[in-house]
Computed example of a mutant assay.
Amino acid sequence: MRIKLLLVSLVTFCCMATTTFAQVKVGVEAGANLSKFVGTSSFPSEKGNLKAGYQVGVTADYEFKNHLMLMSGLSFIQRRGDLKLGMNYAGETPVMTFPKVETKINYLQIPVALGYNFRVNDNFSLIPSVGVYVAYGFGAGKCDLNLRGNNANSVGWKPLHGAKEYGLDAFRHWDWGGTVGLKAVIGQHYTLAFQYSVGIMQAQTHYGLRNSTYQLSVGYRF
């Protein structure tokens, strides 16, 4: 009896898992982004202009019976930014200013959003969403850093190195914040998605900088 009960339970679980998996729409997306830094620091720093990067990843969307959707995935995203810092650093020998600082940081990012599927017709849907993301910066290489002062020049620095370089604090590896987005599904398979994300965690504490990113992606849902 116990074996029969176990077999029935196992079959029931497999059927439920198969049904659930069938309702999950897995896809791939790729596109470009524009990013910059925002912040409320009292330092006299300009947050710079929007800089172009890119992203590529996989998506997983689950739709409930009431058309609410749970949307997630995993993506590689390159965020770029620049700063024009006119701040003198006391204690440096010589005292320096940073007229231009560039960053190019690579992240692995996981969003989790709640959306609603507005089915316009059988071949076209619009899905607005709101949620959160968490990202980990795993690489940046050398970025341009222009110095102004005695014996100053242009050098390369590593914003994720962890140590202060030339009096400039490193960026954090971890980042998290909020997202809003709009996805169009065309012909049940092709997607066009716009998303805006802004960091809640400070990416760099000295200037109170947070990431701000606009993303546009095209994709295919299986």
Rank of each mutant, 00 (worst) to 15 (best):
L192D: 05
G187R: 01
G181K: 02
V198L: 13
A170K: 07
V180D: 05
Q195I: 14
F194W: 10
V185K: 10
K183D: 14
L160V: 06
H189G: 12
D175E: 03
A163H: 14
Y190F: 09
I200S: 15
A170L: 05
Y166W: 11
A184C: 14
W176Y: 14
G199E: 03
Y166P: 00
W157K: 04
G187P: 06
Y190I: 07
W174P: 14
G162Q: 10
T191N: 10
A163K: 15
G199C: 00
I200C: 13
Q188R: 08
I200K: 13
K183C: 11
D175F: 06
G187T: 08
H173Q: 02
G181E: 05
L192T: 08
H161L: 08
P159Y: 03
F171Q: 03
T191K: 07
L168T: 02
H161D: 14
V180S: 01
Y196K: 14
G187Q: 00
H189K: 04
W176T: 14
V185T: 13
L182S: 00
P159S: 08
F194R: 11
A170V: 06
P159V: 02
A193W: 07
T179F: 00
L168Q: 04
A184L: 11
G167H: 09
E165I: 04
D169F: 03
L192E: 01
A163Q: 11
L182H: 11
Y166S: 06
A170E: 11
H189T: 04
D175W: 03
A163N: 10
W174Y: 15
T179V: 10
Q195H: 13
G167C: 09
F194Q: 05
V198E: 10
G181V: 04
G162E: 06
K164T: 14
P159W: 00
L160M: 06
V185F: 08
K183R: 11
H173V: 08
Q195L: 09
L160E: 00
G187H: 06
H161Q: 13
W157M: 02
D169L: 03
M201W: 13
L182E: 10
G199F: 03
W176F: 15
G177T: 01
I186T: 09
H189E: 01
V185N: 10
G187K: 01
Q195S: 09
R172C: 07
L182F: 12
T179K: 05
Y196R: 12
H189V: 04
T179D: 08
R172S: 09
V180L: 07
Y190M: 13
G167F: 03
G178L: 11
G177L: 02
G178W: 04
D169E: 05
K183E: 12
G162S: 05
D169N: 02
M201R: 15
S197F: 05
T191E: 10
G187D: 11
Y166R: 00
H173N: 12
V198Q: 15
T191F: 02
A170T: 02
F194P: 12
H161F: 14
V180P: 14
G178T: 02
W176E: 12
A184W: 07
Y190Q: 05
G181C: 12
V180G: 05
